[in-house]
């Protein structure tokens, strides 16, 4: 029976397998190139297996091309941004869902409208603001710019989530003598775990992959480059080191790839959720 289903699916399976292979081939090629020498890369570019697996490209990228520093910067910026965004958007979402105040509806509409503003539209004043705060070419400045651009979407998603939780729960907690803050931390947050996971993975992906903002905000300080900006600079400085480049590129994308593979369902839930709203 199963065999028959499989046989009937065969044409579809073949088509999907071929397309899927093309889809991930660039990554297979990157992994393979990162273990080759530059000479091997040029003379036998199509062969997937290197003569022998060499790790020297990774060592070169990590130590000589300063990717250890870039990696550290990326981690600091991403983790700080994720923490700030989760805390702020969960609190705001809860407040929007539970607290009544004048001008609430217009505020929500205004929030929603800002989602459609392209980034190039706001980067110039953000740059100016960071500069006036004296935070240009500093990591806190970069974190502030990354965190500031984001929480609207998540605040709205948290709002929708908290609105779906019956008010009786809050009231029961209040009867037991819990304060607003205690209710939030001990009752609401545990119920919002899936939302928190979604926020963490999406914000991690956005900040980790961010290029425009760190490029503009760290133009004058190479030590503050994140991985994306560092890789861009790498091409300018070592423009014939192809295999070093693929090793550096893999160092940059593996963390976000691992996160995706581990927490896939939150990625997809978050993305379809944000589309619906």
């Amino acid at each position: 029976m199963r065999l028959r289903t499989l046989l009937r699916q065969l044409p579809v399976q073949v088509v999907l397998a071929v397309v899927a292979l093309i889809w991930i081939y660039p990554f297979i090629w990157m992994v393979s190139s990162s273990f080759k020498t530059n000479r091997e890369f040029l003379s036998r570019g199509l062969e997937l297996l290197p003569e022998q697996f060499r790790t020297e490209n990774y060592v070169r990228a990590w130590e000589v091309a300063n990717f250890s520093q870039y990696f550290q910067n990326s981690v600091i910026v991403t983790v700080s941004t994720v923490v700030i965004v989760v805390v702020i958007s969960a609190l705001t979402g809860y407040a929007l869902a539970r607290v009544q105040f004048p001008g609430k509806r217009p505020l929500i509409v205004l929030y929603a409208a800002t989602l459609f503003i392209p980034k190039g539209y706001t980067i110039i004043p953000v740059y100016q603001l960071i500069r006036e705060l004296g935070l240009l070419n500093t990591l806190p400045g970069l974190i502030l710019a990354e965190a500031g651009a984001a929480p609207v979407l998540f605040a709205l998603l948290f709002m929708a989530h908290f609105s779906g939780i019956p008010k009786e729960l809050d009231e029961a907690a209040e009867l037991d003598g819990a304060t607003f803050g205690q209710t939030f931390i001990h009752v609401m947050l545990p119920l919002a775990k899936p939302m928190i996971a979604t926020t963490v993975v999406l914000q991690f992906m956005w900040t980790w992959n961010s290029f425009f903002t760190p490029l503009v905000l760290t133009l004058n300080n190479p030590d503050l480059r994140t991985l994306t900006v560092g890789l861009y600079a790498f091409v300018g400085e070592y423009n014939t080191d192809w295999t070093g480049l693929t090793a550096a590129a893999l160092i940059s994308i593996v963390p976000v790839l691992v996160l995706f593979l581990a927490l896939q369902r939150y990625f997809i839930a978050g993305l379809t959720g944000s589309v619906k709203s």
Partner: peptide
């Protein structure tokens, strides 16, 4: 099919 979506655009462009 989803893997390219999560990988860094700037890195992909360079590669």
């Amino acid at each position: 099919f989803f893997i390219p979506v999560v990988t860094t655009s700037a890195v992909i462009g360079i590669v």
